[in-house]
Design a protein around this nucleic acid. Sequence first.
DNA 1: CTGAAAGCGCTTACAG
DNA 2: CTGAAAGCGCTTACAG
Lengths: 323, 323
Amino acid sequence: MVTIKDIARAANVSYSTVSKALNDSPLVKPETKTAILTKAKQLGYTPNFAAKHLVTKRTNTVGLVWPEINRVALTELARHVNKMMAAEGKNILLSISDPIEAIALFSRMRSDAILLFEEDIPQNQLPAQLDIPLLSYGVPGINQFPTVGVQHEYAMELAVSSLVQSGHASIGYVGMVDGIGRRQLAKQAGYLDALKKRELEPVLVDTKGLNSIDGSTAIAAFLTKSSLPDSLICSSYDIAVGTVRAIRQAGLSIPNDVAIISYDNIPQQAEGDVPLTAVGVPVETLAETLVQELLRLIAGEDGLVQELVPELVVRTSSRLRKQ
Amino acid sequence: MVTIKDIARAANVSYSTVSKALNDSPLVKPETKTAILTKAKQLGYTPNFAAKHLVTKRTNTVGLVWPEINRVALTELARHVNKMMAAEGKNILLSISDPIEAIALFSRMRSDAILLFEEDIPQNQLPAQLDIPLLSYGVPGINQFPTVGVQHEYAMELAVSSLVQSGHASIGYVGMVDGIGRRQLAKQAGYLDALKKRELEPVLVDTKGLNSIDGSTAIAAFLTKSSLPDSLICSSYDIAVGTVRAIRQAGLSIPNDVAIISYDNIPQQAEGDVPLTAVGVPVETLAETLVQELLRLIAGEDGLVQELVPELVVRTSSRLRKQ
DNA sequence: CTGAAAGCGCTTACAG
DNA sequence: CTGAAAGCGCTTACAG
């Protein structure tokens, strides 16, 4: 492995001059700089990250802890965060290992910060005190770390309110019921509250999982026993995809037979056979907030707990039915 | 940030003794060791990865370059590789950035090796010579690096042969047609060869993308113009999911109206409404081969180019039709 | 068993 | 402008 000492020898300068040249310091004469850079390229030099970090104390690396790399909406969010962090000169490194181990690894690596996409870690398993900042994406209050979250309850209120205004009196919910995901539980609670407030009867369709296939299976099973409510709120994009599939499979039409509102404000919602009305914080806003907060934490500022306000985007799937 | 020197001070020993104690060296007296370990825990010590690596020359880290974290089959493969590498004491770090930048990053980080899940990088953009081993997952011969691949052509031969034996004379292909993915192109070529050999007429259904939604959209569009062949080979699990959705949506039955064989030998193929016949190298075999090869490369042995042999698993979706 | 010393590959004041 | 020196946080021969 070639080091700056090898370059120094080849270029007949001291290795501290090489270091300066490689970092484009104004302290080194242009000709010397060019000569050194040429030699470095010739020798196939690759800077040693660890050595550099050891002295500069910065890794410009942010660890993303995300064991489940399989939700479309989260993938979209990760993609945005990755891109925006790159623009700030920070590299996102993703671990799909056990969250506790992943946090420990990023700690040892002295990542500038850790972003946690997994919220179901028992509080007592999280390190009581971390030396590097950790930002949690999820429901505030589940751990002691700064958190960026979404007002899920308000999102459900928006969805229910919109359906009611369109004349729907029976509104169902498709998602994991009484599951372990905090985000999922918050959505369910929000739905139940919004219905209760209006004295409407809730209908819960339990998907028992979060994949689109879980959504379609649950709807198909439900249909063998009874007919669907005339509108459904799906707890995520994936669930909505499965729900739409099962409904159309049953020969029903959207929105005429069943109106649909999906969770997750991502562009994909518009791109299916039936453009889906969606509620949620726009993925760009979410990403931007996460990045801003990470940069603040890295700069040593105090962590905040934020809950972002969701928006409703109306598309075909919940348009007013022709009476 | 607490260092071994802080621990040394607190425990009244030299910091080289602390280092030995933390590494569980037999050279240090048990009582001293216990005292040091206790102090370390008390102070909340986290070893500095960079410092350790700088002297030991090992990072025990493998970089996974995978910009598209959205294919079910690849996610399943990544999960297996991650788990198996963890068992070997190696940490997988994933980058979803531009592959060239990701490779450069892992180079600077001195990862023990790089695993490349993206095959459509122009040969001339890849570094001519890397100081750390790189293993490519994909079609052999597209770059100068050791590669683990799959005999896609043989997989297609297996699929076609199985359908022909079941009495199917019209066999279509659903996937990205003439796209840029090498794996996809190899599958398409294999399909065309297998049909030509039997003097059967090929039918290509172009999905123009790799998501399940692309599959269902393509099938639905195809159905507006003509009827489907009586059997279909889908180029991936995702495509098969979409294909099945669209077929059932059209009121057709699988396998009675249309038989389906899907690509990707993953457990998920069995779990849908219609258990899918699938062809491909079992994901466990694929993962094991990748891990073995990575470990060989890390040990300094020569890289190999391997093509694994796919297997066909027959399930409901291609069972003999009732005549 | 314990500690002093050298060194991993860099950066950065500080002299010259 | 250039170079010698110190030091980042560790490990590992080597003395004692």
